[in-house]
Design a protein around this nucleic acid. Structure first.
Length: 335
DNA sequence: CGCCAGGTAAGGA
DNA sequence: TCCTTACATGGC
């Protein structure tokens, strides 16, 4: 919500002014800065308690991810910026300690494009969050303290695009993750956009406009269930018409946005919370019925059975306000 | 082969 | 409001 203007304010022409992220007060003391170091490069200063390598480790959890390509020190992704596909590499060279966004392919970035890219990446890695209060809160917790040590600097790696986030959540309902990745790849291969560059293939998730044109029968032929096909068709339609948008949902109170999402067919509490957590950045998003979360707590707490919903709610009560991060760190412990 | 998987809708008490 | 059950299929 209040994040929108900040990146603009922090985009400096003069890179010499960027040092010392503490100068960035516009966002409540969070130290994200952006600068234009060259026409094809944008640099973001990173906040405290952020570790890019730890985030890359998380992103490497599946080898079937089709929407980005990882290397040891960078992630590359084809993304729509200024309405045009751009291939971007994100790295964090130790020499500068800044998140470095390089355009590898596509048209050169205008100033507006650079702002949009900076905002996307800042959102992707949740750079504008001050994680210190969470770490203080759970620093002595028997369950979470080991996790914030083991995954120190991990941010909730988001899915900034609402349509992509909704589709990923829908596809992931009640199937194992491996199959969810397969379904996402089929959707992307069939209806998305591809680019070949330096011997590698990069894919963009299909637009809602494109998927809105696809019949549910055709979606079912990709081995989506009728429920999933209908849910994706409905989401594509509502986003295409503008009835649902990320901006619109961000303007609503957390609970209202959640209810709004759940009015859509195929969007239940789990999907609404998942999207709240990974797209809308709701800090209180808590997919309490999530099987993976139940398994994580079962495993981490050494229980002989999965915890009930009531038990999870009791466990999470002390972490009020940080449910999304508690969930994400527990998930992380599973993979 | 059987059980589980980062659920949801629909039908019934 | 709160319980069942069907949905559909891959992975192990």
């Amino acid at each position: 919500m209040s994040e929108q203007p900040d990146i603009n304010a922090l985009l400096f022409e003069d890179s010499a002014r960027v040092d010392g992220g503490a100068s960035a007060k516009a966002n409540g003391g969070v130290s994200t800065c952006a600068t234009v170091a060259a026409a094809d490069r944008v640099e973001l200063s990173v906040p405290e308690l952020f570790d890019f390598a730890i985030c890359l480790d998380y992103m490497a959890r599946s080898s079937s991810e089709c929407l980005y390509r990882l290397s040891e020190t960078a992630v590359e992704r084809l993304m729509l910026i200024g309405g045009k596909p751009r291939l971007i590499r994100i790295s964090c060279p130790p020499a500068t300690g800044r998140l470095t966004l390089d355009r590898l392919d596509g048209e050169p970035l205008t100033a507006e494009d650079q702002t949009e890219l900076a905002r996307y990446v800042s959102d992707w890695f949740d750079l504008e969050l001050d994680l210190a209060p969470f770490y203080r809160l759970v620093g002595e917790d028997p369950l979470l303290a080991p996790l914030i040590e083991r995954f120190h600097g991990l941010r909730i790696v988001g899915i900034p695009d609402l349509f992509e986030a909704l589709c990923w959540a829908i596809v992931g309902q009640q199937v194992n993750l491996a199959f969810a990745y397969t379904l996402k790849q089929r959707l992307t291969e069939t209806y998305g956009t591809a680019l070949s560059w330096a011997g590698n293939r990069y894919l963009m998730f299909p637009t809602p406009e494109r998927l809105a044109q696809v019949s549910q029968e055709e979606l079912c032929s990709l081995q989506l269930t009728r429920n999933k096909a209908r849910a994706i068709a409905e989401v594509a339609e509502r986003i295409t018409t503008g009835e649902i948008s990320r901006e619109g949902l961000l303007a609503l109170d957390t609970e209202v946005a959640r209810e709004r999402l759940m009015k859509l067919r195929g969007i239940g509490p789990w999907t609404a919370d998942y999207v709240g957590m990974r797209c809308l950045r709701h800090r209180t998003a808590f997919p309490v019925a999530d099987v993976g979360l139940q398994n994580a707590v079962c495993h981490m707490a050494g229980l002989d059975r999965k915890p009930t919903v009531a038990e999870l709610q009791e466990l999470f009560a002390p972490w009020a306000g940080w449910e999304a991060y508690a969930t994400f760190y527990l998930w992380r412990a599973l993979y």
